[in-house]
Every structure is written in C-alpha cells, then in structure tokens.
Write a protein that binds this DNA or RNA. Structure first.
Length: 816
RNA sequence: GGACUGGUGGCGGAAUGGCAUACGCGUACGGCUCAGGACCGUAUUCCGAAAGGAUUGCGGGUUCAAGUCCCGCCCAGUCCACCA
C-alpha cells in the first residue's frame, strides 16, 4: 500500500472547527479572573465574498488572539457586520431585491467563509449594524448628543441629479461630475442637513495623540494631526465703509497686519452675494462659485486665481487706512471665517492675485535697511517687522503675539485657534441606514422621538426606484406621526445616518452585544480599550477619528472610563497581484475559496502571514502558497516520524542535543517576541522553519530533546495553522487542545551558548573569526585577535593604531 | 504642489550602528524512485581559476565601524490638496 505523504487537510480542518464550536473554545467569559485581552479587527462590509484583504486582516488578528489565549488571557475576539450602506441599496434598485435580503444573504456566505478559515471568534457576540437591536442605540446616542447640543441642523450643499431627482452620494458621482445612472451633470443643491459637532472635540482628539504615541503607527497619527489641522493665529475685525457690520478674518500671521493691501472673501460669503449684486456682477460671482465647487469636487489642481473688486473698502484697525474688499476664488467659505486679509508681500497666493490685478505689495517683514525693490514671489519666512508703526523691529514670532494682544486690548479682534476639521455631516438621503429619530413639528420645532418608542424602524413599504428625495419619504405611514410634545400632526425626519456612525462605537457593543436596555453595561465595558486593533490604513482618518470622537463623547456621557478606544493599532498593508490592489475591474482577483479548497485554510493563513511583514504590501504568489503547503506537510511528517519512533532510535550526540536545545529555546524566544510584542509574523514563521530544518538533520528522533523541540514546533505554529497543529498535538499524545495549552517558555539557560563567534575586522573589513568563551575580557579578545594567523598576514609591515573591542561580538583593528 | 512610507540577490523578504543577503520561492546538481512537477540532501549576491575584490536607488557627510544616523538628489506607492 502506498504511503501518503500529504495530510488529509479538509477532514482535519472540518473536524477541529466542529470541535472548537462544540467546546465553546473561543467564547469570552465575563467575570473571569484571568487578565483580559481584547483583540479586534475592523469588521467587514458584507459585500458578498471575502477577499484576500479580509483574509489577511482576520488571520493577523487571529494569531494575536490565539497567542494571547495560550498565554493565559481571557480573550475577547468578536466579529460582526458593518451592514448598512449604499451597495445594498444599489442592488435593490438594479435587481429588485430588498436591501435587507441582499445583506443577510451576503452575511450568511461570508460567515461560512470566516468559519472555514478557522478564525477563533466568539460567535455568540455576533451582530449586524442593520439589526434593530443595534441601530436602536445609534438613535439613542443621536438623541443624547442632541440633548447635549452636539447635534444640530443647518443648510449644506449636496449632489443633486436633476434627471433622477435624487441626492447622490459622492461615490455615485463620476470623476467628470456625472450621475452614475443617467450621466446627467450633477448639480449642487442646498438642503437642511444634520451635523455632529465633532469640532468641539478637536482639541481633545489632538491631545489624545500623546497617549497613542508609540502604540499607533506614526504615519496614522501624522495624518490625523494634519486632518484635524490646528492653526494658531488671530481674528481681526475690519469695519466696512458706510456699514454697521464688520468683516472678520482669521490669520496665522497677525504680524503682517500692516501689509494687508486688500481683503479677499469667499465667493460663497453672504457679503459677496450682496455686494456683487450692488455692482451688477452677480453673474460673474456665480461663475466663481461654480468654478470653485467644480475644482473641489474633481480635486483639480488650482489654476489661475480669479476675482473682482466689490466696490467697498474695509478699514484696517491697526492704522485706520482703507483696504479694498475683493471676492477671490481661492478663499474657502468653510475654513476660518470665509474671509482673509491679503498680504501679498508675505503670502504666495495673495501675491499671485495681487500681481494679476495690480494691487500694491507692501513689505512688512524683512530688513528695514535693505527693503526689497521688487518682489517676484512672496517672502513667507519669519523676520523682523517693518513699515509697522510702533511694532517696527519686533521679530515676527513676538509680533504674532503682540499684535494679537493689541487687537484684544482695542476690541478689534483676539488671538484665536482654528481647525481644518469640519463638523461631521451625518444625514444621508438614503434608505439603508439608521433612521434619524427626530420629528419636525410646526409648533414645537425639532422634537426627539421618546426613548421608549425606539427603535424607529425602517419602513418596509418602500419601493426602490432610485428617484425622489429620501426613499423613507415615500412611506406615508412612516412620515406622518403625532408630535410627542403637543400631540399635533407632525412629520418624521426621513434622512438616515451616515454608516460611519454604525462603525464608531461597535467595538464597545461587543462587550455586551445582547443588551436590550442600554447600548452596553458600563461595567461590562471594562474590556475596553481594545488592546489590539487591526485594519487597513485607508481608515486612518475617517473611521479612526470618528470612533475616537465617539469614545470621548461616550466618556462624557459616563459610559466608558478610558480616554481612547484602541490602545494599539496595526495598519495592515494591501494584498496585490501584479503590483496593484486586487479588484474586479482590473481582473486580478484571487479567490480565497479556491485557495482553501485546494490547500486548506492553514496553508492560506500561513502563506499570507509569511509572505510579507504585516504592515507592508503583500504581493500574491501561487508558488509561495505551495511553499507553505509543503512546509506544513513537512511538519506533519516530522511529527508522525517522531511518534513512530517513540522508542529512541540511537541517541543524539551531546553536541547535537545542545544545538537542538538552543535552537528550540531561541525559536520560542523569537516567536514569543514576534507574536506578542512586534507582530512580525513573517519572521516568527521563519524561526520555526529554522527549527524544523534542524530537526530534519538528525536521524534519531524520539529522545527527550527532540520531543521537546517537536512539541514547541506544534505550539509555536498553532496560532498560524491551528487545525493541523491541533491534530498533531493529539498525535503527540498531549492531553487537551493545543489551542488551550500553555505557551512554551524560553529557558534563559539555553539562550546563551558555550562559545561565541568573535568577528575580527581590520579597518572595518571582516578578516577572520574566533571561537571564544562568552564573557571573555577585552584584553583576551585583543590578544587572541592579534595572534590569529590570518590577522598576522594582514599586519605584516603595518602597525596597529587602535583596537576596538566589543565583548562577545567583535574586534576591529585599525592599522596603518 | 504638500505630507507620509518605502527602494537590499532572478523573486517575496531578513538584519538593537557591529558577520549584508536569515527564511521561503525559483534554479542547478545528487539521492530515492517504474516515474515524478512528491520526498531527502547539496549549492545558489556579483566578478574572479584562486588569492581577493565589489555590492543594500544616486551623490556627499558623521563614525574604529553605516542597509541602519545626518544633508542633497532620483524613483515608486499611499494620502491630502488654494486650510489664510
């Protein structure tokens, strides 16, 4: 009979998956005395199928979870579904399937795929954000935020398709500004929208970075810092000739106030509209507004700046001289005050505008002894104030502060701080999301739905035509309600919430996912913060800022006690094929199912962990997958051979035993560090490979040293290839589950060796090596080095100028 | 235009300022085989017969010693993009 040389992968994987489930091996236990560990991966959008990016994400998280479990931690490793969103609604319009049906079907498929991968989830805590039991709490939070004044309503611009008569999400507008369905040119339209006052938390979000330094990738913190965009400067009030109101600007350079030669206001500024009408240039203004929006939407490179004089002067408070007010298309309405004082000498954008329209340039920062004759570009660096009256001679850095103080003293402005972060627009004119739990009453205004009436459920009598405003508005039974305050006829809010709301607090729901009286029990939330969070870098700004904000809001509400939701963050790299991200449109997708059915989950997991460091881009390679498959079989044969030779077949020499022992403990040490501290799974696997290679060198397996080594191999690989290792654990005759066994400990005695190799360098170049006892003194090392034959030959006719000796490492002889 | 990350053999990648190229893929050779694209082993950065020399995108610098630190440049990827 032919001996099999590959293992029965599918049989083994199924067997252990069933066993773990029956045994409830991965269920997190509340009220357990062991130290807690919360491992979390960003939950998936149920798009239909798992892709390789998911496999990488969830496998990485699983190694962390399984490793911590074997280290005696009570591990929470949950999974759920980020289930609301546009694709479900698009599918509904195209295929006449209800979004919920489409979503639930996808979840069912993907759940099975995750189970087939053997990810050690606590499935008992699973939920989808489209569950009424979950989105009820989105609504509850919304109302709490409303009561706190963190939620408000104001007009904002949306994408409007004039042919479909519907609001479009940004993703539904093509790069050239056309509707995804009818190709009509999309127009901006002003609608009442809901906002969350995240800007109130800007300072706190920035401050939180202190806690995250060293635990989050520097890259992500930098991106967030830029996104939040704190600028220190001053507000300056300019009076306007012939008017009572003032024009307030924000500047980071109050020290240049004397050099403001014109005011520039945003085309969308209310004053621009009024003044443009007076000078008969409303049409020109409209062109500026449209051009600006167009560029913003298409992320176009800024071309030549444009604008015009609005016919009125402002008065510079610092010297009372008139300054013309212009409208300019490079000024943004939604940053600062929507108006600037333009200082062409010291700001490049102002300079370009001034040059084009022949506006004077006055140098106010520089060297008074050597004034610039003619500017060919703005001088933006700091310097000394000049042409600035009483402030002449003041360095800019002091000037910024002093002018701010002067303005404050004269009530003409004050030092102030501005952020780039905007309030979060959370309303969507969509069906498949959480209904906003508010009621519009003509007498009482905006009234929250009473808590006992939550959740406001999504209506089911809605047709998905893709037309009209919000699909919810099509349900009469949904819209028409009684006002909770005055009991009069009122109308329900028909917008739904941005799906980023769902993902902003889901991690805390996992602490208590079945709670029906609160989003979660604050006591059970002692799992927080998430110890290790893992996900794609693409969420560096949006999701990771929103959830940090939400967490801080929950803290203010007394629901959580820690400051940050995620203690350590790992931003995993993309999975690519042919150098670019896998995508259907590129046709370079590798289906995880195909890999699993050919080689099994363990091979798929191992390859994806081994092929690249977790944070780097991973290039898919079929040959590499086979390499992982071969390695696992190599381990399988090794263990079977060891067991077959349960009676020692000869013995290892003392040297071999020592060497194997050292390799074993070195590998334990290396893997422990790589799983638990660095999360460098690729090098951990390489270390186990080295140990396996050494085991293959020795013919006589079955002795105690070999058994210890083999046992370590199985445990060290268990987080990576859990199914096979579980099976081999049994074959080794071990009791219980490998996934529940105690992580092996490296014995420090075996981490040092009898001799160390000392590298001998001459002028920094490697010339020889010595075997020495560890801890040999510098003198001994130097003497031995000089006595070395090879060294002598290099020394002939030269003299040693200097000798650098690094104990247990090297001797470097500098010769002349 | 700006910010960030990276650039190491034929390929994926290793390397607390101290032996560059661990581990894997591929390739070659040998063993085992009826056979093998299975398995076991050996070799494998480049030049050179060897001694030896060169080598971590390019150019400089610091250091006894640089892939690693500093300065300038080139290239690739990601994100942001008129933020006063």
């Amino acid at each position: 009979m032919e001996q099999k040389n590959t293992y029965e992968v599918h049989e083994i994987e199924k067997k252990w998956q069933k066993h773990w489930e029956k045994n409830r091996s991965f269920v997190a236990k509340d009220g357990d005395s062991r130290p807690r560990f919360y491992a979390l991966e960003m939950f998936p959008y149920p798009s239909g199928n798992l892709h390789m990016g998911h496999v990488r994400n969830y496998t990485l998280g699983d190694v962390v979870a399984r490793y911590q479990r074997m280290n005696g931690k009570n591990v929470l490793h949950p999974i759920g579904w980020d289930a609301f969103g546009l694709p479900a609604e698009n599918a509904a319009i195209k295929n006449k399937v209800h979004p919920e049906k489409w979503t639930r079907q996808n979840i069912a498929v993907m759940r099975e795929q995750l189970k087939a991968l053997g990810i050690s989830y606590d499935w008992e805590r699973e939920f989808a954000t489209c569950d009424e039991a979950y989105y009820k709490w989105n609504q509850w939070f919304f109302i709490k935020f409303f009561e706190k004044g963190w939620v408000y309503k104001k007009k904002a611009s949306v994408n409007w398709c004039p042919s479909c008569l519907t609001v479009l999400a940004n993703e539904q507008v093509s790069a050239s500004g056309q509707c995804w369905r009818c190709d009509s040119v999309v127009q901006p339209k002003e609608l009442e929208q809901w906002f969350i006052r995240i800007t109130d938390f800007a300072e706190e979000l920035l401050k939180g970075h202190e806690l995250l330094k060293g635990k989050w990738p520097e890259e992500v913190l930098t991106m967030q810092q830029y996104w939040i965009g704190r600028s220190d400067g001053a507000e300056v009030h300019f009076s306007i000739e012939g008017r009572q109101d003032k024009l307030t600007v924000f500047t980071t350079r109050p020290d240049t106030l004397f050099g403001a030669t014109f005011m520039a206001i945003a085309p969308e500024h209310p004053l621009a509209k009024e003044l443009a009408a007076k000078v008969g240039k409303s049409a020109e203004l409209d062109t500026l507004v449209k051009g600006q929006r167009e560029r913003k939407r298409q992320r176009q490179e800024a071309d030549e700046k444009a604008g015009f004089f609005l016919g009125v002067n402002a008065i510079n408070p610092i010297h009372q001289k008139p300054v013309p007010i212009w409208v300019a298309d490079y000024v943004l309405m939604d940053y600062g005050t929507g108006a600037i004082m333009a200082v062409p000498a010291h700001d490049q954008r102002d300079f370009e505008f001034a040059t084009k329209y022949k506006i004077p340039v006055i140098e106010v920062i520089g060297d008074p002894a050597k004034p610039v004759a003619k500017f060919d570009k703005a001088m933006e660096a700091d310097g000394v104030m000049m042409n600035s009256g009483e402030f002449n001679g003041t360095p800019s850095s002091d000037g910024k502060r002093k002018v701010g103080e002067w303005l404050k003293a004269k009530s003409q402005g004050k030092p102030t701080v501005t952020f780039k972060l905007r309030d979060w627009l959370v309303s969507r004119q969509r069906y498949w999301g959480t209904p906003i739990p508010m009621i519009n009453c003509s007498r009482c205004g905006l009234v929250p739905v009473p808590e006992k009436e939550l959740p406001v459920k999504l209506p089911t009598d809605v047709e998905f035509t893709g037309q009209g405003q919000s699909p919810l508005a099509l349900s009469a039974s949904f819209v028409n309600v009684k006002c909770p305050k005055c009991k009069g006829q009122a109308k329900r809010e028909t917008d739904t919430m941005d799906t980023f709301v769902d993902s902003s607090w889901y991690y805390s729901r996992f602490c208590d996912s079945k709670n029906s009286t609160a989003p979660f029990d604050p006591v059970k939330a002692n799992w927080l913060p998430v110890n290790q969070y893992i996900g794609g870098i693409e969420h560096a700004c949006m999701h990771l800022i929103y959830s940090r904000f939400w967490h801080k809001a929950m803290k203010r509400l007394g629901l959580v006690s820690c400051d940050e939701p995620f203690d350590r963050l790992l931003a995993q790299g993309m999975v690519t094929l042919g150098g670019s991200a896998m995508s259907k449109s590129r046709g370079n997708v590798v289906d995880p199912n195909a890999i699993i059915s050919k080689f099994g989950a363990d091979t798929a997991r191992m390859f994806i962990l081994f092929a690249a460091p977790p944070t780097k881009q991973l290039e898919w390679s079929d040959a590499g997958v086979e390499g992982s498959w071969r390695f696992l079989n190599r381990v399988w044969r090794l263990i079977n051979d060891t067991v077959a030779k349960s009676k020692p077949q000869g013995t290892l020499s003392e040297e071999q035993q020592k060497s194997l022992k050292r390799k074993t403990h070195w590998a334990i040490q290396k893997v422990t560090n790589d799983y638990g501290i660095e999360i460098q799974i690729n090098t951990a696997i390489a270390a186990v490979m080295e140990l396996v290679n050494e085991l293959y060198l020795y013919p006589a397996l079955g002795d105690a040293t070999s058994k210890e080594a083999v046992r370590a191999v199985v445990q060290l690989l268990s987080p990576v290839a859990p199914h096979l290792m579980e099976d081999l654990w049994g074959i080794l005759g071990e009791k219980g589950l490998c996934s529940e066994s105690s992580w092996p400990k490296a014995d420090p005695a075996w981490l040092v060796s009898d001799t160390v190799e000392i590298v001998i360098q001459i002028n920094g170049k490697l010339r020889s090596r010595l075997q020495m006892a560890p801890g040999s003194s510098k003198d001994v090392l130097e003497r031995e080095a000089l006595a070395d034959e090879k060294v002598k030959s290099f020394l002939a006719g030269k003299s040693v100028v200097k000798a650098i000796v690094v104990p247990d490492k090297l001797v470097n002889l500098v010769i002349k």
